[in-house]
Amino acid sequence: MVIINYAIMCLVFGTTFLTIKIGIDAGAPPFFSAGIRFFLAGLLLFVWMILKKRARVNLLIQKEMMITGLCLTFGTFSTLYWAEQYVTSGAAAILSATAPMMILLLQMIVMREQVARKALIGCLIGFLGVILLVFPQVTMTASLFWLLGSGAILIGQLFYSSGALYSKQVIRRFADSSPVALNAVQMMYGGAMLMILSFFTEPLHLSSMLTPKAIGSLLYLIIIGSMVGHTIFYWLVAKTNPVFPSTWLYLSPVIAMGLGALLYHETVTWFMALGAVTTIAGIVIVNFDSLRNLIKRQQRKELDLA
């Protein structure tokens, strides 16, 4: 089940960078569209969890939910949405792929945890693969806003990495609540923060949100990107570790390349194929021990059921 959910999450998240870009290019205000996306997705999921009696209303007043929402949703996506006004979706995917490496560095430097050399090597190989894959397709212009956008995404990934590590503690702290409910509440908090930021920083013209491209982008990101993708991510953090689900960031450019070739007949060069293979190799190295343990547990379950 872990591997299946991981594959679904990678497929979902692999499409979100371009979907965000489509909405922003259609005129949707970055902070407001991000805020409404996450707040509505979180609200719908939380109501569903309440109706299923798998969540308590008092989760809404827990400070841990606010902190998680600040990191995983507000910090990560305020920077990404703003940056995608100036940075291509491909470049955003490259820069976002630094998150698993940042998680390992935070574990090693801040939390003083022992990190296997194999994991560090795997992160570097995976990140190299992303560069090999996407860099030939990206026109890097050294404009001020491109540089600011790139820096913003990197800052956002620090928020993301901190939130992924902190969310593991939150899940243990609220072990009696569904990870889906915890994810819903943090999205509501993060979405509300984004809308407050929008109120003070950008003009809001509803007409720009009502174009077909803007509406389509928003609906896809609410239902598929947030309700499906982020719920699976939170579930995987609970079932494995913070690093394993975060490696979807290495696969997103690979998925984008495959969809482009399949649906739009885009050319796939040998250089791009090398990047894809290198990326997957890095992911396997980073998670080799976790994958081996998951396979062993699955085999034991099958033997017990036999």
Rank of each mutant, 00 (worst) to 15 (best):
M1R: 04
M1P: 09
Y6M: 12
C10H: 01
L11S: 13
L11Y: 05
T16Y: 07
L18I: 15
T19Q: 11
K21D: 09
I22T: 15
P29T: 13
P30V: 01
F31Q: 04
F31Y: 07
F32K: 10
A34W: 00
F38S: 14
L43Q: 03
L43K: 10
L45F: 02
L45H: 05
R54I: 09
A55D: 02
R56W: 05
R56K: 13
M65T: 09
T68L: 04
G69I: 07
L70K: 05
L72V: 05
T73S: 07
F77H: 12
Q85S: 09
T88F: 06
T88R: 05
A93Y: 07
S96F: 12
S96N: 15
T98L: 12
L106Q: 14
L106W: 03
Q107G: 11
Q114L: 05
V115M: 08
K118P: 00
C123L: 01
C123W: 03
F127N: 02
L132G: 01
V134I: 13
Q137A: 06
V138D: 12
T141H: 04
S143E: 13
L144A: 11
G149M: 06
I155L: 08
G156K: 02
S161R: 04
G163T: 13
Q169A: 12
S177G: 06
V180I: 08
L182I: 13
N183P: 10
N183H: 05
V185A: 03
Q186H: 11
M188P: 11
G190H: 00
A192H: 06
L194C: 09
M195P: 09
I196Y: 06
F199P: 00
F200T: 09
T201A: 14
L206Q: 03
L210E: 06
G216F: 08
L218G: 04
L221H: 04
I223F: 15
S226Q: 05
G229M: 10
Y234T: 11
W235R: 14
L236W: 08
K239N: 13
N241F: 07
V243M: 01
G260Y: 03
A261G: 08
L263Y: 09
H265L: 07
W270A: 13
G275D: 02
T278R: 01
T279I: 15
N287E: 03
K296V: 03
R297P: 03
Q298K: 14
E302S: 07
